[in-house]
Write a protein that binds this DNA or RNA. Structure first.
Lengths: 224, 224
DNA sequence: TTGCTTGTTGATCATCTGATCAACTGAAAC
DNA sequence: GTTTCAGTTGATCAGATGATCAACAAGCAA
């Protein structure tokens, strides 16, 4: 007799829907939003027709995938912690970016976000607008309020953000070797960023000539 | 009489192939590598069947697109300029990244590179390996050789690189507003980066407590 | 004009893809 | 056991897609 218990053919609608969405997140992350319903069904272990009992169309299914992947990724507590001036600024920055990275540095999030971005989904712009207003702007204000730093402009904040997010892009989009533990790299970026904004920097902080200036900076004299 | 001169129906093979590749670069950048040969043909102003006179398959056509977009984008003179120690380090960095940005911050390059990366093309990994070995590593060596800086590790170089490249990602992938002239933002990133690596940084460079350390950095004490 | 070469086209094929539907089936209710 | 309801399936449709091919036509030589 066969001891292996096969999954029951009939499932609660809740459970079946869950199973399909979970498989869809994984599948579309891998092959892109152009993946076929047939391949997805096979991977989910159901027939293709069944998908249309739970979702009215492929677009509807993708909607559920987006919701699953993006909804609730931005923890509102982060904002409170960013603002908590009892904690040293540096620690707040490092802590926030470690948490942020832990939230979005997954195969599914990174890739679906990028596929959706290329496809022109409005969702991405909404999300990044949110990041700018609710996360980067507060971070910037906190840095500006800290006496030890020159106030960075938003472009500087995006540069810090991009340098960190690029870790996830290297790993999950380009599939290049990247640190397993991104913590040290994040701390390094934050440390360099703050040190780069430090007030009254020593004149010879970098090589001779140009003075270090935060953010907007002057033109670099073209060579010769 | 109709003064408008229509394009001749018959073209030199060279010219026709050129016309198709040019249209293909633009088309696939927009819709992704899954775009159809019919839509492409319509956009190029030729029939779909004609594509197969110039390319044996869609994959073959995509090969030509990749070649067109990626080949020769990395100017070998950059390496010489990076190494030219007669020029101040800061100027070399700014100059290089301005040139690099001018080379790759185009709708076509950015998007095709990202589509190809998501699709798992080996091409991307080759290209970025090249960037790491021929560009970032020399930059790192030059910074290390400059007396005014602590030597950054490769992760720090990737963070600088990512912060700058993310400008192009914001603009061409996510289609968010971004500076038209990326020059100042690049100078700002370079300036902050170098200042962040400056030797013997003042102890209160950033907020109280942790010492600024370049690159690998220590753990951040978790709150409470 | 005639004939040849070759760039170009419309039609067509086999397959794939999103979507639909009648029929089947397992489990709970009676 | 029988009935009933709802989850599931195989078959199928219409349109899209990569690829092919015989036929057409523009330029050139004789």
């Amino acid at each position: 007799m066969d001891g292996t218990l096969r999954p029951p053919r009939r499932l609660e609608p809740e459970a079946r829907r869950e199973q399909i969405v979970a498989a869809a997140v994984c599948y579309f992350a891998e092959v892109g939003l152009g993946g076929t319903t047939r391949d997805l069904a096979q991977r989910a272990g159901v027939t293709q027709a069944l998908l249309y009992r739970y979702f009215s169309s492929k677009a509807d299914l993708l909607e559920a995938v987006f919701e699953r992947v993006f909804l609730g990724r931005l923890d509102p507590r982060w904002i409170a912690e960013i603002r908590d001036r009892r904690v040293p600024l540096r620690d707040r920055l490092c802590r926030f970016y470690r948490q942020y990275a832990a939230a979005i540095f997954t195969y599914e999030w990174m890739r679906i976000f990028m596929w959706a971005g290329l496809a022109g989904e409005a969702l991405n712009r909404r999300y990044l607008g949110h990041v700018a207003e609710r996360l980067l702007a507060p971070l910037r204000e906190e840095i500006a309020a800290d006496g030890s730093c020159q106030a960075p402009d938003m472009e500087a904040m995006w540069a810090l953000h991009g340098g960190i997010v690029y870790l996830g892009i290297r790993r999950f989009i380009y599939q290049l070797p990247a640190p397993d533990d991104v913590g040290p790299a994040i701390d390094g970026s934050v440390n360099r960023f703050l040190a780069g904004l430090a007030v009254s920097p020593s004149a010879e902080a970098s090589s001779r000539g140009a003075r270090p200036s935060a953010g907007r900076s002057g033109r670099v004299p073209s060579r010769r």
